Simulated scan of single mutants.
Amino acid sequence: MADQVLKTHNLCAHYGDFQALFDLDLSIAEGEVIAIIGANGAGKTTLMRSIAGLNSNNAEQIVYRDEPIGALRADQVATKGIALVPEGRQLFPSLSVEENLIIGGRVGRKGPWNLKALYQLFPILEERRNQPSTSLSGGQQQMVAIGRALMANPDLILFDEISLGLAPVIIKTIYDALPNIIDDGMSAVIVEQDISKALAVSARFYCLQEGRVALEGDSQTVEREAISRAYFGVH
């Protein structure tokens, strides 16, 4: 089995008095794609934000390449090689498409991703590179958000709700690009509402239910009935 690139240990997360995650244990191997599924409010986005350093955690609760990183800030996590494609894209509205992409590269990590490579991956972005980022369609903005993350040349990329609110043709374009995105041994975590898509592109999955892991397993062999029970908390 490939080496673990990231693991969480008894990961908990709070928003004030509200606890969103309860003792989560999960792992991601080198070059592996895992899916995180679950209903709204299950804790998926909180998990992504915790790994990316946007939520404050204890250092030992998140370990990346044998280094505790749970207490690091988001900018410090990014320099380690973890990039987040956030839910809702969160582009900089005052900047052009290309300026948004360039910001991702300021992490300063070496690797295969640069503007030329991104424009080959998503040619429409080159055509629109001088436009304000928020003047693009939702699908094109998602491509910018993905591109911004890739410009950091991460070893682990986190996709939070990769297809939420997008037209089917755009979702297909983005998923068709995934093999090229993770071609060089990059690890990925995909949070996805569409269970079929999530399982199709991942090796393993974790189903969250009210902040806990309700089910985990092999994406290709799991029974849909088991997922349904875990997803809705039916025992």
Score class of each variant (00 low, 15 high):
68 P>R: 06
64 Y>D: 01
61 Q>M: 03
101 L>C: 05
185 G>L: 07
206 Y>K: 00
74 A>Q: 01
107 V>G: 07
91 L>E: 05
134 T>H: 00
208 L>D: 13
67 E>M: 07
3 D>K: 13
130 N>K: 15
171 I>T: 10
234 V>I: 13
224 R>Q: 15
138 G>Q: 00
144 V>M: 02
117 A>L: 07
16 G>T: 04
74 A>C: 00
120 Q>L: 13
3 D>N: 13
172 K>Q: 08
149 A>D: 00
220 Q>M: 13
44 K>M: 12
160 D>S: 08
9 H>Q: 08
144 V>Q: 03
195 I>S: 13
122 F>E: 11
2 A>P: 04
12 C>A: 02
194 D>F: 06
28 I>F: 11
225 E>F: 09
219 S>A: 15
98 E>N: 02
163 S>A: 03
214 A>K: 10
197 K>W: 03
3 D>A: 11
185 G>T: 07
81 G>L: 02
165 G>M: 09
16 G>S: 00
129 R>K: 13
36 I>C: 11
93 P>D: 08
86 P>H: 01
189 V>R: 12
48 M>I: 03
125 L>E: 04
207 C>A: 12
79 T>S: 07
147 G>Y: 11
79 T>E: 09
225 E>H: 13
194 D>W: 01
8 T>N: 02
205 F>V: 10
199 L>V: 03
213 V>M: 10
198 A>L: 05
225 E>Y: 13
39 A>S: 04
136 L>C: 00
147 G>Q: 10
229 R>H: 14
6 L>A: 10
103 I>P: 09
199 L>P: 10
210 E>G: 11
126 E>H: 12
196 S>T: 06
210 E>H: 14
